[in-house]
Write a protein that binds this DNA or RNA. Structure first.
Lengths: 108, 108
DNA sequence: ATTTTTAATCGTATATTCACGATTGATCGA
DNA sequence: TCGATCAATCGTGAATATACGATTAAAAAT
C-alpha cells in the first residue's frame, strides 16, 4: 500500500502555528510582548512612549497581537489596558516548542 | 535614580527572533519544514509535488526559509537538495522557547 | 459646558508578500 | 549533439503590511 502524501496547508494546527509566528514576525511586536511581560499591564500610551513609533502605528501592532490572541485589551475609561493573554502565551509556548522539537529530532 | 526605559527595535536578538518568526509565518513554510523533518532531505520538485503550489512559489518559500537560516540548499547537478539546517533549527528552538518562557513567567 | 486626554480609526503612501506562468541556464541522458 | 529535466529568476498582478498624520469618539477633568 503506497501512501500518497499530500500536505494540506489548511491544517488547523499548521495554520494556527503560522498565525502565531506571523504575529511575532515584527520586532515592534516582540518588543511590545516583552514590555507587557515586564510591566504586567500597559496602556497604549505607555508603549508609545517607549517605542520609536507613532501612536497609530503602535495601535496597529496591538491590534495584530490581539487578533492573534496573544494579548488582551480592556477598555478602562478613556484608556485601554493591554495585558499578555495567558492562554495565548501558553499556546505560543506549546505550539512552537512542539514544532521545534519535531524539527530538531531529525535534523540531518 | 530613575531609569528611562526605551526599547530599541534594532536589538539584534529581538530582530533575529522576529526574523525567525516571520519565516515561520506562513502555512506553506511550516509545512515545508515538517516535510524536511520527515524525509530528512528533499529536492524542490519533491516539495512541489506534495504542496498545492506552483514550482516558482515553492522556490520562493524555500528562498525565504534559506535566507532565515532555517534550511540549507545544496546544488546537486541539476537539482537542489534541501535540508533542515541544524544550527538554524536550534536557534529557532532556543530563541522562541526563551521568549515564551520570558512571557509565560509574568502572565497576569 | 468646555476643554483635555486617550486610543481607535481613516486616509494615504510605500514596500513587501504571495501567487502564477514564462523564461533562463545549467546539467543530465540518449 | 540534442532534447529533456530541474530549479532559479523574471515579470506581473493582487493582496497585505507598515508607517505616518489627521480625525473621531468617548471619557475625564476643569
Amino acid at each position: 500500500m503506497t501512501e500518497t502524501i499530500t500536505v494540506k496547508l489548511d491544517d488547523p494546527a499548521v495554520k494556527r502555528s503560522a498565525q502565531i509566528a506571523k504575529a511575532l514576525g515584527h520586532p515592534a511586536r516582540i518588543a511590545i510582548l516583552k514590555l507587557l511581560a515586564q510591566r504586567t499591564t500597559c496602556f497604549c500610551g505607555d508603549i508609545t512612549e517607549v517605542l520609536p513609533l507613532a501612536q497609530s502605528t503602535v495601535s496597529q501592532h496591538l491590534k495584530a497581537l490581539k487578533s492573534a490572541g496573544l494579548i488582551t485589551g480592556d477598555v478602562e475609561g478613556v484608556r485601554t489596558c493591554y495585558c499578555l493573554n495567558p492562554d495565548g502565551v501558553k499556546e505560543l509556548e506549546s505550539t512552537l516548542s512542539e514544532l521545534s522539537s519535531e524539527l530538531i529530532k531529525t535534523c540531518c
